[in-house]
Write a protein that binds this DNA or RNA. Structure first.
Lengths: 123, 123
DNA sequence: ACCTAATAGTTCATTTTTTGAAGTAATGAT
DNA sequence: ATCATTACTTCAAAAAATGAACTATTAGGT
């Protein structure tokens, strides 16, 4: 997309870090608490290991996710949002509010308002 | 990514519509008012016509942008956010707040807090 | 001792996207 | 008649994502 240096616009900065498929959904999952690599894969049906690895690496480099590896066999690696990462909750909440508001317009079917409707706690 | 049907999670819905490079930045530009195709291209340095066309088509299909073509020569086509599209301002604001908050951590240089720092008005 | 299972990746070939450059139709101005 | 302008479309090349297979390590079962 743009160039190498950090963009000056906050929106663009956000987009630089949370770019690409699955990025934001990974954050959504981690907002519910730390997860292992495999747990993330299971919850995000369809992510390839490759993409997941890349996203997590970028998140780590940007200080929004921490990675803790336990020297066990089989290995155990736990990913967790940092404070900076936790602050993304507000952004995801805004997305959720907007996304949920679309339902009313679609006549097809009112989406179930089950507890599962959005898989991260609002506060 | 996932399947064809609308995702039940608001976050995922948002991401389905605002997916891919430039998508959110296009909205950012349109939050300042209607723009022609060429004006968008000029302001988003680096978008290809191809990508811009595709994004705008998707936005139109999802009712967040309206397209008005004037039968002139050379043609004039104006893109404008619908009410639904305007409501994205809150999401972009949340992104901007988060993105701007990153500066403090980076010791390199305090980013100029010029009027241009984020190219859409906050309210 | 041997075999199996499990985790967190990596590697690689295939498919999908994005890019960048070039082309197109229409017509008012020069 | 030629040129310029706009909003695209088309096409080849580059970049990214996917899906499947593979790897190192070692605890546990037989």
């Amino acid at each position: 997309m743009n160039s190498r240096s950090q963009p000056c616009c906050g929106v663009a900065r956000f987009l630089t870090i949370l770019d690409g498929p699955w990025a934001t959904l990974i954050i959504r999952e981690l907002l519910n608490g730390p997860l292992r690599f495999t747990e993330l894969r299971k919850q995000l049906e369809g992510v390839s290991a490759h993409t997941l690895t890349h996203r997590l690496k970028r998140f780590e480099e940007n200080g929004i996710v921490s990675r803790t590896a336990y020297a066990e066999t089989p290995p155990r690696v736990v990913y967790e949002l940092t404070e900076k990462g936790m602050e993304l909750r507000e952004v995801l909440n805004a997305m959720r509010v907007w996304g949920d508001s679309l339902e009313s317009a679609e006549p097809e079917k009112t989406v179930s308002n089950s507890i599962e409707s959005c898989p991260f706690s609002q506060k």
